[in-house]
Design a protein around this nucleic acid. Structure first.
Lengths: 343, 343
DNA sequence: TTGTAAGCGTTATCAC
DNA sequence: GTGATAACGCTTACAA
């Protein structure tokens, strides 16, 4: 292993000079800088992370707590992981992973062992038991998701309330007379992630808005399997409107979208011809569904980037927007093949 | 921050005794152990990771290099990340993430900065430029994937050659008389991941086997989009066999499966009724495709677990199977709705 | 502009 | 069975 002492010896300077050349925390004469950088280059010196962390009290690591809970939407988390990792690297930081099933201890471990300088907590529940713990840690914590009580922590998330509203509004505006929301399955409800109720509230609010006067109902599939979708659809389609009535289905669970589309096709109901379907999912998921589903985007990359922006401002002791602790990203509606043509 | 010195003071022992109680590397009297453990408990002591790493030359961290390259199969990597992270935690290790786009420097960084004790390298290419670098690092590297020259590194992967063979054999055994392989799209080919050619070789070998005498062809879609699938199918279906002939489609790219199924349905061809489709993907993907596709499983969890088992044997200086440096996992065939019924 | 030296919080080698 | 104490490799006052 090559250390900064080796570099110092080769460059004919003191060890601290090497350190200062690397950190830029004091001015160095051009000549010295050149010699040191040359020595670093020829020796291939890389500073020891542990030693650096110990001395500087900064690990240059971001802790990322991901939801690997059974039933969690797998396809959805990857863009978050990817974007967060890349943002971290841009600021010369690394990312260490922890899984949701470690619970609150996972957080204290990351923080108290000085494994990281800040934590990003994904998919927080409404009354997530980790929130009070997170608020008491010695490292800043950014939440992706909005708990009932953010406890002063910064939160970034999609504006699910707006998403719910947009879904219903879109259907109402395009002359649908009935909206059925295929809710989240039981296991998602059990995890009590906050976005569920936010989305539902948005949808309900929009449906209740006087201007529309649209029929609105919610059904809950038992799970995201084909059978779950079937059961939900049985209920949703039970009382079909009069011939020529326009039905819109809203499917907020990405995992339920494809099974729902398939069940509809199996029944001879073609989305985009016989009824409308609006999904809440990433554009990627929407593009590759069969048929491509009109969707409200989840914008995982945008959400992640904003979270990391706040995080690094916090770490660099820069000013952080103090107006609100909650930052919401506006979803984007993209019409695809599952929307009924205008009447 | 509470240190082992604080614990030692409270327990009335020396700092080294605290260390030995935690590591169990020397015998401690029951009474001393009790007092120390009590002190740890009341103070909530957590050892500083950086200091520990510095002193012990062990970071207790596993580096995981994931393929976030554009075009990489997103859904596929998550089970790997999850399984690897959990295996690491079981052995009291953490996981630090690096992305493929960091290239070989990413590896040297992880190793030379002593950020981790071992590296897992996912989705290695046939002539991956990172392999020679990996072989020269001071930490062990486990490959997921099999390069042309493993350079003595341990590799774990699905047996893609066997998978290719199994796909064609299954179709041949179920009285199909024509097999078309919808190959990997250009961007996957460009990445030159080794499994592509292994799968193709397996399929070709099986097709060539005298016993079958089955017509075999390969077509390459430009990409995994709907349009890509369309183009590939145009070619694949160009010369349709005589009426009543049994065609089998093999689709090794998970991302191409759904677009292909959709394109077939659009043409009025129902998989499982008019032709067979066999996909190479995780069971989860197969279950939720429309219709559920007969598949050969990618077994990401099994592959990951085996990789981690080798890794920790290496770290613990236990004996490692020396017979071969390459460990291949057998894919599993599951018949679903896209297989033609027996004639 | 540069050097000296005191930590940072562990681990592990001696000694007893 | 336990206690001093010297590393581990870096950062950062404090001097010069």
């Amino acid at each position: 292993m090559v250390t900064s002492r080796d570099v110092a010896r080769l460059a004919g300077v003191s060890q601290s000079t090497v350190s200062y050349v690397m950190s830029g925390r004091r001015s160095i004469s051009p000549e010295t800088r050149r010699r040191v950088e040359e020595a670093i280059e020829t020796l291939g010196f890389q500073p020891n992370a542990g030693a650096r962390a110990l001395a500087s009290q900064r690990s240059q690591v971001i802790g990322l707590v991901v939801p690997f809970a059974p039933g969690a939407d797998m396809t959805g988390v990857l863009p978050f992981i990817e974007t967060i990792t890349k943002c971290a690297r841009e600021e010369d930081h690394n990312v260490i992973l922890a899984t949701e099933d470690e619970g609150a201890e996972g957080l204290t471990r990351l923080s108290d062992q000085s494994l990281c300088d800040a934590i990003v907590l994904m998919e927080v529940g409404s009354k997530d038991p980790r929130i009070p713990v997170a608020a008491g840690l010695s490292v800043p914590v950014i939440l992706i998701g909005v708990p009932d009580d953010p406890a002063g922590l910064y939160c970034v998330d999609l504006d699910y309330t707006l998403a719910g509203r947009m879904a219903v509004d879109e259907l109402a505006d395009s002359a649908h007379d009935r909206v059925v929301l295929l809710g989240y399955p039981r296991d998602v409800l059990a995890r009590d992630v906050n976005f569920v109720r936010r989305f539902l509230r948005g949808a309900e609010d929009a449906a209740a808005a006087a201007a529309h006067g649209i029929a609105y109902a919610e059904v809950s599939p038992p799970d995201t399997s084909r059978a779950g979708a079937e059961a939900a659809l049985d209920e949703a389609l039970a009382e079909l409107g009069p011939d020529g009535s326009r039905l819109g289905l809203v499917v907020p669970d990405p995992q339920l979208i494809q099974p729902t589309l398939q069940s509809l096709l199996d029944r001879g109901l073609v989305p985009g011809r016989d009824l409308s379907v609006i999904g809440l999912c990433t554009d990627r998921t929407a593009e590759t569904s069969t048929p491509p589903v009109t969707n409200l985007s989840l914008e995982p990359r945008d959400v992640s980037r904003r979270a990391m922006r706040i995080l690094f401002r916090l770490l660099n002791r820069e000013s952080v927007p103090t107006t609100s602790t909650v930052e919401l990203v506006t979803p984007r509606l993209t019409l695809r093949q599952t929307s009924l043509p205008a009447r």
